[in-house]
Amino acid sequence: HERALMVNRLQKLTRMLRVHPDPKWKQEQQELIKRLK
């Protein structure tokens, strides 16, 4: 369940980064990718 939330968050971040590349979001995205591996 928590994994699904993280995947959701990651997808949302990816969409937001396409619109507005924010370093903070980029960092969070990298963190999520690490944790999901």
Rank of each mutant, 00 (worst) to 15 (best):
Q29S: 05
R9I: 10
L36A: 01
I33E: 03
K26E: 10
D22I: 04
Q30R: 09
V19R: 11
L10F: 02
N8I: 14
V19G: 10
K34I: 10
L32S: 02
L17S: 02
W25Y: 10
E31N: 06
A4N: 12
L32D: 00
L32M: 02
K24S: 07
K37D: 07
K26D: 03
R15H: 13
M6R: 04
Q11E: 11
P23W: 05
Q11K: 15
I33Y: 05
R18I: 09
R35W: 12
R9L: 12
I33T: 03
K12M: 13
K34Y: 06
L5G: 12
Q11R: 15
M6W: 05
K26L: 13
L13Q: 00
Q11G: 06
L10E: 01
V7K: 10
K26R: 12
A4T: 13
Q29H: 05
N8V: 15
L10H: 00
H1Y: 13
D22K: 13
K24P: 00
E31L: 07
L32Y: 01
E2D: 10
N8E: 15
R35S: 06
D22P: 00
R15F: 05
H1M: 12
P21Q: 12
K12P: 00
L5A: 14
L32F: 02
L10P: 00
L36H: 01
L13F: 00
L36E: 00
L13D: 01
M16Q: 04
L5I: 13
K26M: 10
E31G: 03
H20Y: 14
R18Q: 12
H20R: 08
T14D: 06
E28C: 00
T14G: 07
A4E: 14
R15P: 01
P23A: 07
K37N: 11
T14E: 10
L5W: 15
L17D: 02
N8G: 11
R35D: 02
A4Q: 14
H20W: 12
E2P: 06
Q29C: 14
A4V: 11
K24D: 08
H20T: 08
V7C: 15
L10A: 01
I33N: 03
R35I: 15
R35A: 12
M6Y: 03
D22A: 02
K26P: 02
W25S: 03
Q27T: 06
R18A: 11
M16N: 02
E2N: 11
M6T: 04
Q11D: 09
Q27N: 10
Q29F: 13
N8Y: 09
L13Y: 00
K12Q: 15
P23K: 05
E2F: 08
T14F: 03
Q27S: 08
H1D: 14
L13N: 00
N8W: 08
R18Y: 04
K24Q: 11
E28K: 01
E31T: 06
N8L: 13
Q27D: 07
L10R: 00
R15L: 07
T14P: 00
K12R: 09
V7F: 12
Q30D: 07
K26A: 08
L13I: 09
E2C: 15
W25Q: 05
T14W: 05
Q27R: 10
P21A: 11
D22L: 09
K34Q: 12
V19Y: 13
P21H: 15
E28M: 06
R35T: 06
Q11S: 10
E31P: 00
P21G: 06
R18F: 05
L10Y: 03
L32H: 01
E31K: 05
E31W: 10
R35L: 14
V7Q: 09
R3Y: 14
M16V: 01
R9S: 03
N8F: 08
W25F: 11
T14Y: 07
N8C: 02
L36N: 00
Q30F: 04
Q30K: 08
R18N: 07
V19F: 11
